[in-house]
Design a protein around this nucleic acid. Structure first.
Length: 201
DNA sequence: AATGTGGCGGGTACGGTCAC
DNA sequence: GTGACCGTACCCGCCACATT
């Protein structure tokens, strides 16, 4: 007995059980549609990735090709670690330039409260992007610890520092050196006598 | 704890393709 | 032509999880 036949035999007010019996096939069909839609999208992707013609690819083939495609992507990323690093460096460079712009603007704003300005720069510095996984001593912890005055470290953050998560400390890679040099650049600019309070380190 | 809901797997029907 | 095989859609029951 199909769902439609159930509908006919029941009348206008199907019970909850019968209603479910009616809905279930529709839900199932929607589900299959979702699966097939995604499979179609995957098919387009792998056809493009593997330069295939629009020949017949059954579902199992599509999944297999997708797995291979993802594995290719992963291995190519592993073989070229400089791709991510380069992007990070570009971003950090731009970030620091923006910090300088903000700093210069603050210097020209006589009405600007110096404390507020230094807090702003402090915040920007703490938010300085650094390579994944690294957390500088000045970087704010995830929760409300950012509200603490500059130079203070929340007890929880202090306890976490480095080994708090239970993981062994990361060894420093080239990404760390890049962040260091950026930090040095910021330090250098502050030493040029810009804003005296902007020295969270 | 009872009930509702969605996901999943097994079974089946149906249509297309291919070798004979 | 036809039987075997394959891929797909559908139905149904079961199960896990969420809700009341």
């Amino acid at each position: 007995m199909t769902a439609s036949s159930v509908a006919h035999s029941v009348g206008k007010h199907p019970s909850a059980k019968e209603e479910r019996k009616l809905r279930k096939p529709l839900i199932e069909r929607k589900r299959r549609e979702r699966i097939n839609n995604c499979l179609d999208q995957l098919k387009e992707t792998v056809i493009g990735a593997f330069r295939l013609d629009q020949s017949k690819l059954e579902k199992a083939d599509i999944l297999e090709m997708t797995v291979k495609h993802l594995q290719n992507i992963q291995s190519s990323k592993l073989n070229d670690p400089t791709l991510g690093l380069e992007a990070q460096q570009k971003y950090s460079t731009g970030y620091i330039q923006c910090m300088h712009e903000v700093h210069n603007m603050l210097l020209t704003c006589e009405w600007m409260d110096k404390t507020l300005g230094s807090r702003l720069l402090n915040h920007l510095l703490k938010s300085l992007p650094r390579p994944t996984g690294e957390r500088s001593p000045t970087q704010p912890p995830p929760r409300d610890e950012a509200a603490l005055p500059a130079g203070r470290v929340a007890p929880a953050a202090a306890a976490r520092g480095g080994s708090g998560s239970g993981k062994p400390p990361r060894s420093e890679g080239p990404a760390c050196h890049a962040a260091r040099s950026q930090e040095r650049a910021a330090l250098h600019s502050s030493q040029l006598g810009m804003l005296e309070m902007w020295r969270p380190w």
